[in-house]
Amino acid sequence: MAQQDLSIGALGKMTGTKVETIRFYEKIGILPAPARTAGNYRSYGHDHVRRLTFVRRVRDLGFPLETVRAMLDLADQPDRPCGEVDALVLEQLHEVERKIADLERLREELDRLAHQCRRGGRMAECRIIEALSPHHEDGRCCP
């Protein structure tokens, strides 16, 4: 099968994308509708491979679909300055840094909980369950 006449399965294999995802990207306009064969099967070409590979890379970097769409729109205008793409990348970098900070706080809390455990004890004495259970300020358990 030539690269200009790819089935949806072949496109998926080439790009590491599930068939359902390709159909979804077509439905929302991220990937243009392909030509159809005489038997009404989708027929993808080189531009689909290039575009889907780009989308996969951008998604792998954690960009949301609306940003993918914006980047595709910008990429389709090669004479435009790239400042808007730079801004989108910086915005994503800040989001990743925020998530890393959240994960570091989560790790610290889990580490604190793990060190409260008295190995081999009974559930009634479990410090982790106690620490996770909601309590009133006077020590009574919340319903």
Rank of each mutant, 00 (worst) to 15 (best):
C117P: 12
L74D: 05
A33I: 02
Q77D: 11
G121D: 14
P64K: 06
G12P: 06
R23C: 11
L110D: 10
G45D: 10
R57D: 00
P32N: 10
I28Y: 03
E66I: 06
P32I: 08
R127T: 13
H46V: 02
F54T: 00
E130T: 09
G16R: 05
V85N: 06
E91G: 11
G12D: 07
T67P: 03
D73F: 03
G45F: 00
R112T: 15
R119C: 08
D138S: 04
T37S: 06
R127K: 11
K27V: 15
L74K: 00
R23A: 09
R105M: 09
I129W: 07
R23W: 08
I22S: 02
R118W: 10
G139R: 02
V89D: 12
Q92N: 14
T37E: 01
I128Q: 07
D5N: 10
V49T: 06
R51C: 09
H135C: 02
P134K: 05
E95I: 03
D60V: 05
K13W: 04
G12Y: 05
K99M: 11
P64R: 06
A2V: 12
H94L: 13
G139V: 02
L65F: 04
E137H: 00
M123T: 12
A114D: 14
K99E: 15
Y44T: 00
A38E: 15
V89H: 10
T17G: 01
E109V: 10
A70G: 03
L11R: 03
G45H: 00
A10E: 14
A124P: 01
P78S: 14
R56L: 04
K99C: 09
Y44R: 00
M71F: 07
K13T: 09
L106W: 08
M123I: 12
P78A: 14
L72R: 00
A2C: 03
E84P: 03
D47T: 08
E104Y: 02
E109I: 08
R118G: 07
N40K: 15
G120Y: 11
R118A: 08
M1W: 10
Y44N: 05
L93A: 09
T67V: 13
A33D: 07
G83K: 15
F63I: 15
Q3M: 06
A114Q: 13
L31F: 04
G62H: 06
L74C: 00
T21K: 01
R51N: 10
P64V: 13
N40C: 08
F54A: 00
R122S: 14
K13M: 10
R42K: 15
L6V: 00
L113W: 13
P143K: 12
C126V: 11
L132I: 12
D111V: 13
Q4F: 04
K18I: 03
R107A: 11
